[in-house]
């Protein structure tokens, strides 16, 4: 029996805005009158470490998304997407920003950061659907690379049971007024990216059908 309407796991690196992003969605759920639960990473892990937030929309139980239970894995960084792919359910979708953030183990030469294909290949085998987005580029296009998390919010908006107005209203309350415009542009760019991608996917599937 389903115990949450929509379970999302948001992952990234400390400083990328994972907590802010999760909080915007949570506040939007509150506005919509939907019960919401989330679990956040604070403290030690924020010093450049992996950050994982759980978000459960339409849920009244514990805040942690069960392993194998996430409807959506929203990854602000590709290695973190793969690191947390076991949270996805069999029918889940991964939404992935393809821009790596190198950990100190890589910059100091102790470890290697694999090329993007080597990360996406196993990820594609694990999850049913995967959408990759150059969110950092879109954030720059919006006018500020710091809005990458809001680009990903725009991407996510296509997949969650919350109306866009609620998300926008919550976004407006969460960023300083002078940054609102750039954040709204970032949201729109993320959102429209998904429309194109969906269209492209359909095209691809149809062409497969006729082969």
């Amino acid at each position: 029996m389903k115990t949450s309407e929509c379970d999302i796991v948001v992952v990234g690196v400390g400083g990328q805005g994972v907590i802010m992003l999760t909080s915007i969605i949570g506040k939007a759920a509150l506005k919509a009158g939907i019960p919401v639960r989330s679990a956040e990473t604070h403290g030690m892990a924020q010093r450049g470490g992996s950050v994982i937030n759980h978000l459960r929309i339409g849920c009244v139980f514990g805040p942690k998304v069960p392993i194998g239970g996430a409807d959506i894995l929203l990854a602000l960084e590709p290695a973190e997407a793969l690191r947390n792919a076991h949270y996805l359910s069999k029918d889940g979708i991964a939404l992935v920003n393809i821009n790596p953030v190198l950990p100190s183990t890589v910059t100091t030469g102790q470890s290697r950061y694999p090329p993007l294909e080597e990360i996406l290949d196993p990820l594609e085998r694990i999850c049913k659907e995967i959408k990759t987005v150059d969110a950092t580029k879109l954030a720059v296009k919006a006018g500020n690379s710091q809005t990458m998390n809001v680009v990903m919010l725009g991407v996510l908006s296509k997949y969650i049971p919350l109306r866009e107005e609620m998300l926008i209203e919550s976004l407006s309350e969460s960023v300083p007024a002078k940054f609102l415009e750039v954040n709204r542009r970032a949201f729109e760019l993320g959102k429209s990216e998904m429309q194109e991608d969906r269209y492209a996917m359909r095209q691809k599937n149809e062409s497969l059908k006729f082969q």
Partner: peptide
């Protein structure tokens, strides 16, 4: 294949 990402 992933590099560890400990807090630093």
């Amino acid at each position: 294949i992933l590099p560890p990402r400990p807090p630093a």
